[in-house]
């Protein structure tokens, strides 16, 4: 299974030999060591921010969520039995918090996708940018139409790179259910994007043909 962008095995080994394990820090926090909790926050904050950002689509809301999640986690450390990795439990708390927040907002706001995603490809021609913006809007609609569970599964997989097993643990369902949800979500997204991609595909072919003509000239 494709791994999320992460440290290599050697880097992880080096890190693990240098860093205090999460479980040890958790034990210290339970004894009242606030500095140990700070270490946990600093270690996991970026991952939690990405999870929250993927679900809430707003950087300010995501930062707010990170703070709320860590405060909740501090108060619930007695609930953490150590049956799963601390990081996975943390993601689970984050996902539940974000789902609660989304439910309070009633609708899933995906504007973030449209507002930001093409900033990194501004070197493309205005025509390409327009097509990409249209694709972004189509994706936004498709994601908004997905059910909460399907959207959460695809976000955790595509944005956060979680493995099937991790998603299953986070969402509290069997691995097979995760695979089914991902398949369902992808099918919907593919249907939504296909018209734009077919058009873009034809244009790509035409561009390549033009390059071939120019090269021959």
């Amino acid at each position: 299974m494709n791994a999320a962008p992460s440290a290599s095995k050697e880097e992880k080994n080096a890190m693990s030999s240098m860093e205090t394990p999460d479980a040890e820090l958790v034990a210290r926090v339970r004894e009242g060591d606030r500095n140990a909790f700070r270490k946990l926050v600093e270690r996991h904050r970026e991952r939690i921010y990405r999870v929250a950002l993927g679900m809430l689509r707003n950087p300010d809301d995501a930062m707010d969520a990170v703070q709320e999640v860590f405060i909740r986690v501090h108060g619930r450390l007695t609930d953490f039995k150590g049956e799963s990795a601390f990081g996975t439990w943390l993601v689970r708390v984050t996902v539940n918090y974000c789902i609660d927040r989304q439910r309070r907002q009633k609708t899933w706001d995906a504007r973030f996708v449209v507002d930001n995603e093409w900033e990194g490809v501004s070197e493309e021609s205005p025509e390409h940018q327009l097509v990409n913006a249209q694709i972004g809007e189509a994706l936004q609609r498709a994601l908004a139409e997905l059910g909460e569970e399907h959207r959460t599964a695809i976000m955790l997989r595509e944005v956060n790179g979680l493995a099937y097993e991790e998603i299953a643990e986070v969402m509290g369902c069997p691995k097979g259910t995760v695979m089914s949800r991902l398949h369902h979500a992808r099918k919907k997204l593919q249907v939504a994007l296909r018209p734009f991609l077919e058009e873009a595909g034809e244009r790509d072919l035409a561009d390549r043909a033009g390059e071939g003509v120019r090269r021959r000239e």
Partner: peptide
């Protein structure tokens, strides 16, 4: 497209 804005932010 789902990853790009998150990575950027």
């Amino acid at each position: 497209m789902m990853r790009a804005p998150v990575e950027q932010a």
